[in-house]
């Protein structure tokens, strides 16, 4: 028993995100009832689930865009809900978030979108250094030629790439992806999945990816977690879950 506890402690200390017994409800709608999940350093976890099951709510709680009712959610070992505003800001600096809609600031050019987080956090006051960093990040997503375009001039795939570049410019340790391939054609979706994998290696990030796209899950996931009825219904590698006989899990792979 003591040995088991010791092993569990070791696993928890290795986790950079640790979710246990998380409960979230919006009025009478109970979204997460007793959710548990961990993310270890360097790992990619894909979270699957039906629409409206609370996948996006989960990652929004991780950056405290939403509050949870009870349970524990620790990021870098600290309870998210207990952080002061200053601590929260410094935690958010170590995390990147790719929104489903990309959420590019549409009154700014691509360059200004990427410069925005750098300037806000005074990461670099040197103009050449800022330019260099913007150039490097845009080259990493293959869109340096779009530097002076407005978001309205970009295609869906380009918007995702720029959104990804903006999240990565601060070199985060954790990336949270909210349905990164939704609304894209299969070829662009595969390109984005490959890009995510490549950037994970380049920037050495750990990721939680919310997705319905099984191609994306196959390419990027070290581990999958399936949400159903507000709990982590099933967890395992892609091959393990693919071989599962559970009808709910099987439905995702069919």
């Amino acid at each position: 028993m003591a040995e088991k506890m010791k092993i569990k402690e070791h696993v928890e200390s290795d986790e950079i995100i640790s979710v246990s017994h998380l409960k979230i409800a919006f009025g009478s709608n109970r979204v997460l009832t007793d959710f548990n999940l961990g993310l270890r350093k360097g790992e990619n976890v894909v979270v699957l689930g039906k629409s409206g099951c609370g996948k996006s709510v989960l990652i929004k709680c991780m950056v405290r865009l939403l509050a949870y009712d009870s349970g524990s959610l620790k990021v870098f070992g600290k309870e998210v809900q207990g952080l002061s505003q200053k601590e929260l800001d410094s935690m958010r600096l170590r995390m990147g978030f790719l929104f489903q809609s990309s959420a590019l600031y549409d009154s700014m050019t691509v360059r200004e979108n990427l410069e925005f987080p750098l300037r806000r956090h005074h990461i670099s006051s040197n103009k050449n250094e800022v330019n260099e960093r913007v150039k490097e990040t845009l080259e990493n997503v293959g869109l340096y030629h779009a530097i002076d375009l407005m978001p309205s001039e970009l295609s869906g795939g380009m918007r995702k790439r720029i959104g990804l570049a903006r999240s990565l410019i601060l070199k985060p340790e954790i990336m949270l992806y909210d349905e990164p391939t939704t609304g894209l054609d299969p070829i662009t979706a595969r390109e984005i999945s490959n890009l995510m994998l490549r950037l994970q290696r380049t920037y050495n990030t750990s990721s939680i990816i919310i997705s319905h796209d099984m191609h994306c899950a196959r390419l990027t996931a070290d581990r999958l977690a399936v949400i159903n009825d507000g709990i982590c219904y099933a967890e395992g590698t892609f091959n393990t879950l693919q071989a599962s006989n559970d009808p709910f899990v099987k439905a995702f792979f069919n």
Partner: peptide, 13 residues
């Protein structure tokens, strides 16, 4: 509605 305000908040602004 396009989550730009959320994106700003997440980036620590």
């Amino acid at each position: 509605v396009t989550e730009q305000i959320d994106a700003m908040e997440v980036s620590g602004t």
